[in-house]
Design a protein around this nucleic acid. Structure first.
Lengths: 190, 190
DNA sequence: GGAGGCATGTAAAGGGTTACATGATTGA
DNA sequence: TCAATCATGTAACCCTTTACATGCCTCC
């Protein structure tokens, strides 16, 4: 995590599809991969400037009828090359970095009830996300013929679906488990 | 992610169990929560100094028979209070931040074969981790009576088990899916 | 008139990794 | 003797978030 400057490749990846402004890059990320990736304007604009300097993207000012200027960026051949190199490189090892697990690991420091509340909140979020991914899946399966990209997008959505389904099942299990234990013995902190 | 200085609470959490040196804190993390949390010495030592300055831990120099000094840190009442406050606070929303999903989202930029290779590598890692979690589970179920902490530890292990099982199933599905597509149409980049 | 979206940025601060630096002990 | 483990730290650098700053347009 952190060493590789993913933001630059995500930006290049989106520009490989179509020219965009910094603002639209942000919006696109929010509407597509926000579940797997985050970015802020504080990263996008300086990164676009750097990419331009290095010749990986080119900027064209687009003035509309009202005289408002938008900076539209397009990917160059060099940029495309670096993008492909990055995508083809071996995938970084993944790690589960969830607050819930860290806090649960130290769960003995608070009451069983508080731990259950934490898991319930997690459970609700997982349920919402699962629904969302299921809707995405339905939509995508209809659009599937249109472009090869949709197949890859679908695979990421399927990951989300299967992952959150497992998370939800775990949460139900964990809540049951702790509820039982809470009843069996009074607990140290109840 | 990032705004809350988790490292300080993880350190406090471990010190709540027993006094430790910076070095042993690192080792403990590696042998227990390394799957859910990472830390480096570059974080531990300065953080311990800060915690001491703020009175959340106290340091005692422990000189052994050879005259070697170890700095052993213990948590204070204040430290314990802040630890509990943190654990009791609502859990941060979790996000799936996996390189594999980012690269797969841009999978159309490389060949189907390369994408399959990426997923296979992911699959193998998931299989290894799943096995590891299953072994942890078996060990923990035996030790379960010893301490309340083991129950919470078990829950995090169960999460790992269920998560990686789902990841593994997804990977098998994704490999099949792409293999089929590869055979159906030549693909743009094959 | 005001809210919300479009659009572009900067600056400070914080969190975290990597590399460097050092040195003793222990077991093979 | 050599590698590994115990043990403590610093410095540079990078990535990222948050907050601030600005201004136009459109729709209600």
């Amino acid at each position: 995590m952190a060493r590789e400057n993913k933001s630059r490749y995500v930006i290049l990846g989106l520009l490989a599809h179509e020219p965009m402004t910094g603002y639209s890059i942000k919006k696109k990320i929010e509407s597509s991969i926000s579940n797997f990736y985050d970015i802020s304007y504080g990263q996008i604009y300086p990164e676009l400037a750097r990419l331009e300097e290095q010749g990986l993207v080119v900027m064209k000012e687009d003035t509309n009828e009202n005289g408002i200027v938008r900076k539209v960026y397009s990917i160059t051949v060099d940029g495309h090359g670096q993008l492909q190199d990055w995508i083809a490189k071996p995938v970084e090892e993944e790690k589960i970095h969830y607050d819930i697990l860290l806090k649960l690991f130290f769960g003995g420091q608070i009451s069983v009830g508080e731990n259950i509340e934490h898991i319930k909140a997690f459970r609700d979020r997982a349920a919402t996300k699962l629904e969302m991914f299921e809707e995405f899946e339905a939509t995508l399966r209809i659009l599937l013929g249109e472009s090869v990209d949709h197949a890859y997008y679908l695979l990421t959505v399927m990951f989300g679906k299967k992952a959150y389904k497992a998370y939800l099942e775990w949460a139900d299990y964990a809540i049951d488990y702790l509820s039982e234990h809470k009843n069996k013995r009074g607990g140290c902190c109840e």
